[in-house]
Design a protein around this nucleic acid. Structure first.
Lengths: 192, 192, 192, 192
DNA sequence: AATGAATGAGCCTTCATTCAT
DNA sequence: AATGAATGAAGGCTCATTCAT
């Protein structure tokens, strides 16, 4: 164990603080001091642990992706059929843990950062690729081979689009509506 | 003519410079100086015309929306049938003018800003509402009344999602793929 | 007549605007634009007429001094005895025209500016000298020669001190109290 | 010890630098950079310690008042009689520490700032109130009750007026003259 | 490990001033 | 005469980052 437990805890606290602050601000205009303050430590400590703001945000993004991934995996394991597993992915995507103002803002920011940061872009591409792989795998037994790629891309884009639009609502996220729309898309893709 | 031609030109130059700088940076971290520099004027002039950075960016967003709107209107006028008009909207959305790295970054940023700026949010909501109204209008003769709302929302979200994902690609935007996917969505919605 | 009437009017408007803005702000942190705006003209015009902010403020100070001077002269002419003329000076000093928040602030500022501006200092010294000359002249028939200088200086300082302290009050100036104190000082000086 | 010695030293250095720069400039047009530069530190450090220019100047004013207060208290303790204590106050007021170009400029500025800053005004009022309380206390055994208030106000205003006029001199302050005039005022008030 | 001290760089903004019209 | 356009300079302030403790 290279890192002490204390060390790992602090890092996690900082990452969660970053997520929290970004979510609340709804923008990338968050300072290291704000994040550190939220975590109850000095900004110098954040640099001690992460080296730079860039790296802290990168770790935060990875954390976000990991959380999502874990939820997806757990739900997939519990679903009995391919169609149910597609629904599991949809439900993970719009679970209250992910589909709320703060997290949606964080996701949008990370999509944005991907345009100017190589590392960030690669990370996001891994997520997209994994999601697509999951979709493709489940679609394989439901629609013809030639249509799979487009269908997977289509579902993924729809989820992202619903995320983006969620940011526009004043109140809480409308999970049901998002799920209904996505499920309906899947249904039409599968039936066609 | 309240404003001189010179004045309007300068303002447009600044807005286009803002768009250009934001697009190139792929982020909101653009300074007024950068924008002014790109327009070949002093940063003080940007304040002279727009009052604040906030207002300059707001005007830029409005410009973006106006450009898109004009393109949509022109294409709608040229399309003979409801289905063709739906395609016109899709084509406007993914026209090279809109669907390129820079503009996509700008759109994403404006979606993000909408979460922390009232004015910005309202502006974007107007755009979303208009787009939906167009879609609803054309869908009216194609699918049953009860399905229209969801279908419009679905198409709108899909377009936004494809924009978001476009930012992840390294190379140029794949317009054909985006159009194909959206058209396919419309087809399945209409046929179902 | 070198200057047109229009020209002189504009200059007076600017000077009065300066006085008004300085008074309202209670500080020297007033911009040429604010002053010009108050006068209803462009800041460029203020420069056209006065050359520089410095010169505008200088002219404003001179205006203030002239107003006071004129009031003093008028009141002196109307007073029959030396003692009455001393009271006339006191009354001019604490007339509502001079002894109000705005004008007091302007005076204080000009005393301050005198420390860093030669021209300003000379102007203020002329005012002080004139006031002293007036006091000395009237005191001559009231107290012994050897005490005159100190008495004049004393009265002048008292007036200035009451001005300075006026700035601390929240409400309107207490003219009566200021006059009472100064008159009492004169009385004791004369009787002693 | 909440604050480190280093920290307190730096803050004091900055305050003294502020006093020095204000005194030399004879105006409020001093930048944080100038003050910080005079103290040999970066302007960012001034903000680190004081938060804002406003707060630094406020602390500087408080420092000025405290210095004066301490001097007054020390001199009062050493004076045996009420009349001697009045003289002690006068001497403290015109001690070389206070009655010099720089400090006089600072006082004038703070009187001016009191007109636009609540906090500043309150601070100055406390000083005025304390000075008056001291004067009243010593006057109690020297003149009749009904005259005390006016006498105290009178002495205070005289001191302030002499300060203001000091700013007009080119050379050094004439302490003797100022003391002579104030003492004479006290004498006449007491005798009358 | 943890922090306060310290800073250089940069940002937004204001402003006095000039100039073309 | 009068103004809007335009700018260079400066100012207050923030921030990521480093360093000594």
């Amino acid at each position: 164990m290279q890192q002490s437990k204390r060390s790992r805890d602090r890092q996690n606290e900082l990452i969660e603080a970053a997520l929290s602050v970004i979510g609340r601000a709804g923008s990338l205009d968050v300072s290291v001091s704000q994040i550190a303050g939220q975590a109850g430590v000095s900004s110098a400590l954040a640099h001690h642990y992460f080296g730079s703001k860039e790296d802290l945000l990168f770790a935060t993004q990875r954390h976000l992706l990991t959380l999502f991934r874990q939820d997806v995996v757990a739900r997939l394991a519990a679903a009995p059929t391919p169609r149910a597993r597609l629904s599991a992915i949809v439900e993970a995507s719009f679970s209250p843990l992910q589909f709320n103002a703060g997290t949606v803002a964080a996701w949008t920011i990370f999509y944005l950062r991907a345009q100017s940061s190589r590392a960030n872009s690669r990370l996001l591409q891994v997520y997209v690729a994994r999601l697509r792989a999951n979709l493709v795998h489940e679609l394989r037994s439901l629609i013809s081979e030639t249509k799979i790629e487009a269908a997977a891309e289509s579902i993924g884009a729809m989820i992202d689009g619903l995320y983006l639009r969620q940011g526009l609502r004043k109140g809480a996220a409308d999970r049901e509506a998002a799920i209904r729309i996505t499920e309906h898309l899947i249904d039409t893709l599968v039936r066609s």
